Amino acid sequence: MPFPTQAAPPPARLVADTLLLRPIAAADAEIDHDALMETRDFLRVWEQTGWPADDFSVEDNRADLATLEQRHSDGVAYTYTVLDPTGTRCLGCVYVMPRDARFLALSTITPLAEHRWDDVEAAVYLWVRASEQERRTDRALLEHLRTWFAMAWDLRRVVHVTHEDLAQQVALLADAGLAPLFAIEEPGKQGRYLAYG
């Protein structure tokens, strides 16, 4: 199946025993901000920028989330907030990008195996808040996502992307039996991102 669009939108929710996913909204600014700031050291490596800055405010975050919400609504790319089962605490985020997203189109993508980037259907980025990494919530999330993409989205060629300097996420993907298929070098960013599949 090709990347979902407005005409054929993706699933609205993933409900599991320990977490749920739904499209992110500007109204999530406060709970998302709490998770971001707890996880800012991780996210600065993940982003290869200074984001989020120590003075990043809830209102700054609301503006960012409004952009993500609109992008999701427009079918350009999809962002899901990861919540606890009550829907009141943000545990992290999942971003589902088309292979030709602008930042990827501007990147240098090098195959690390016998694969073609043109065969990739979606590139997925995820993070969970620091305290949830200790509880292995990222492992549960990845497991649920892999099933969700195959069954509910009907996507077979999904890659999960992380930065090579994030040893914890590199280990997470390797422990799940995934192998690095592509190296992605984004303009202006240090090091490489690795796309696992």
Rank of each mutant, 00 (worst) to 15 (best):
Trp46Gly: 01
Arg136Pro: 05
Gln168Leu: 12
Pro111Thr: 11
Asp60Leu: 09
Pro10Met: 06
Arg102Ala: 15
Thr5Lys: 12
Ala25Phe: 02
Ala130Leu: 08
His144Asn: 07
Glu38Gln: 12
Leu68Thr: 01
Arg22Ile: 08
Gln48Ala: 15
Leu36His: 02
Thr5Arg: 14
Cys93Met: 08
Val15Leu: 10
Ala63Gly: 07
Pro180Arg: 10
Pro180Phe: 08
Asp165Gly: 10
Leu194Ser: 05
Tyr193Gln: 08
Val96Ile: 15
Leu166Lys: 03
Thr162His: 04
Glu30Gly: 09
Tyr95Asp: 14
Val76Arg: 12
Val120Tyr: 04
His33Met: 03
Pro187Cys: 10
Thr49Leu: 01
Pro52Gly: 12
Thr49Asn: 05
Trp153Asn: 11
Arg44Leu: 10
Val120His: 04
Val76Asn: 10
Phe56Trp: 15
Ala130Pro: 01
Gln6Met: 14
Asn61Trp: 04
Ala29Ile: 03
Trp127Met: 00
Leu106Ala: 15
Pro187Leu: 07
Pro23Tyr: 13
Arg62Ile: 06
His115Thr: 08
Val76Ile: 13
Gly191Ala: 11
Pro11Leu: 03
Glu38Thr: 08
Gly188Pro: 11
Val128Ser: 05
Glu121Gln: 15
Glu186His: 15
Ala16Pro: 00
Ala195Arg: 01
Phe42Trp: 11
Asp28Ala: 02
Tyr95Val: 03
Glu30Arg: 12
Leu173His: 13
Ala29Trp: 02
Ala29Asn: 06
Lys189Asp: 06
Ala101Cys: 07
Pro4Gly: 08
Leu104Phe: 14
Ile109Cys: 05
Ala26Ile: 07
Glu132Tyr: 11
Asp60Gly: 12
Arg13Gly: 00
Trp117Pro: 01
Ala29Cys: 13
Ala150Thr: 11
Asp55Pro: 08
Leu173Met: 11
Glu47Arg: 11
Ala12Leu: 14
Arg139Trp: 05
Glu132Thr: 04
Leu181Thr: 05
Met1Ser: 14
Ala12Ile: 04
Leu65Ala: 09
Met37Tyr: 07
Thr86Ile: 06
Val94Arg: 00
Pro11Trp: 02
Pro10Asn: 05
Ala183Glu: 15
Ala29Leu: 06
Phe182Glu: 07
Tyr78Arg: 03
